[in-house]
């Protein structure tokens, strides 16, 4: 009792702070540090089942898992997943972001029906992708058939990519428009007033005033898009069923999810050039993750730095 009385206000505050942050910090160590460290460790491990037991024999694999991943990536049609991921990212970043900016500008300028369109553009954020995909898939397959076939355009791997890309761009406007409109709303009105008094037209105002003023938001979008490059599943999980997606349509994000869902520490059939229908083990998938992170992390830091240099607000 005597001891507590002698504690100063600062000491009490420090003890309380220390006790309170200990639980979140412990969770951070468990669910962030341990999991990510384990990814790196697993990438260098090889697991084997032990006959008659549920345990595994673990050995050091060196760079064997990385080699298998590279072999898989450039085997047969698998390189399409790399190409599709980059194409999807490029279109989202160029066409997707540009259209989002233009739509946001329309809403921001409070043009005809702006409030209504703001709600409509936001709707795909709320309504499950599952619903949107199935409605789109059914309508498109019913209306547009693949060339020389009775099947819908989405059932043929040679014709399905373009409509799936369109769908992803179309729904991608949802979240972006709201955030970009909000960034535009924070622009000082007097700058625009001065421009309008000087007779600047709406297109020039967008390019020479609005865009430079929201550059920090756009930088964030671009940097975050780099992280999405190898994570975006292109909604393929909802476009196709358990029998999977044709190799020509896959993205790396989709491949990683599907493999983790269907594989194990030691898969029933291990992927190799002689068993291409097999699966990568969790160790190999971890190696894949480490390889991707090794590309994406420096790339996103580099792009952020470059965009900050180009940002007129920073200068």
């Amino acid at each position: 009792m005597e001891a507590t009385k002698t504690l100063t206000r600062r000491q009490k505050r420090n003890i309380f702070f220390g006790l309170m942050i200990s639980i979140p910090i412990l969770m951070f160590i468990l669910f962030y540090v341990c999991i990510n460290a384990n990814t790196i460790l697993m990438a260098f491990k090889h697991y084997e089942t032990i006959e008659g037991e549920y345990g595994y024999k673990v050995t050091f694999a060196g760079f064997k898992n990385f080699k298998t991943v590279l072999q898989m990536l450039f085997w047969g049609e698998n390189w399409y997943m790399l190409k599709n991921s980059v194409v999807l990212w490029f279109f989202k970043l160029t066409i997707g972001l540009s259209v989002s900016i233009i739509f946001s500008y329309y809403v921001y300028k409070k043009m005809l029906g702006a409030r209504f369109f703001r709600v409509i553009l936001f709707l795909p954020n709320v309504i499950s992708n599952l619903i949107m995909v199935y409605l789109f898939r059914y309508l498109v397959n019913t209306l547009i058939k693949a060339p020389n076939s009775n099947f819908g355009i989405l059932e043929d791997a040679n014709t399905a990519f373009a409509p799936i890309l369109f769908f992803n761009l179309w729904l991608g406007f949802a979240g972006q428009t709201l955030l970009i409109t909000s960034a535009m709303s924070s622009i000082n009105e007097s700058i625009e007033e001065a421009a309008q008094v000087d007779g600047v037209n709406s297109v020039s105002e967008l390019f020479y005033i609005t865009l430079p003023m929201i550059m920090p938001t756009l930088t964030t979008f671009i940097v975050l898009s780099i992280a999405e490059l190898f994570v975006d599943q292109m909604s393929l999980l909802t476009f196709y069923d358990q029998f999977g997606v044709d190799g020509k349509l896959q993205t790396i994000g989709f491949y990683l999810y599907q493999e983790v869902y269907k594989s194990e520490l030691v898969p029933t059939t291990q992927w190799s050039p002689s068993t291409p229908n097999g699966r990568l083990s969790y160790s190999e998938l971890s190696a894949f993750g480490v390889m991707i992170s090794a590309i994406v992390i420096p790339l996103s830091f580099g792009v952020r730095k470059l965009l900050n240099l180009l940002d007129p607000n920073e200068n």
């Binding site: 990814t39 697993m42 994570v231 983790v260 993750g289 992390i297």
Partner: peptide
């Protein structure tokens, strides 16, 4: 730092953990 550092492919490790 965590927000700015995109780590990809940690799901197998998370499931295993």
């Amino acid at each position: 730092f965590v927000i700015a550092t995109p780590i990809v492919g940690a799901t197998p490790s998370a499931v295993n953990f």
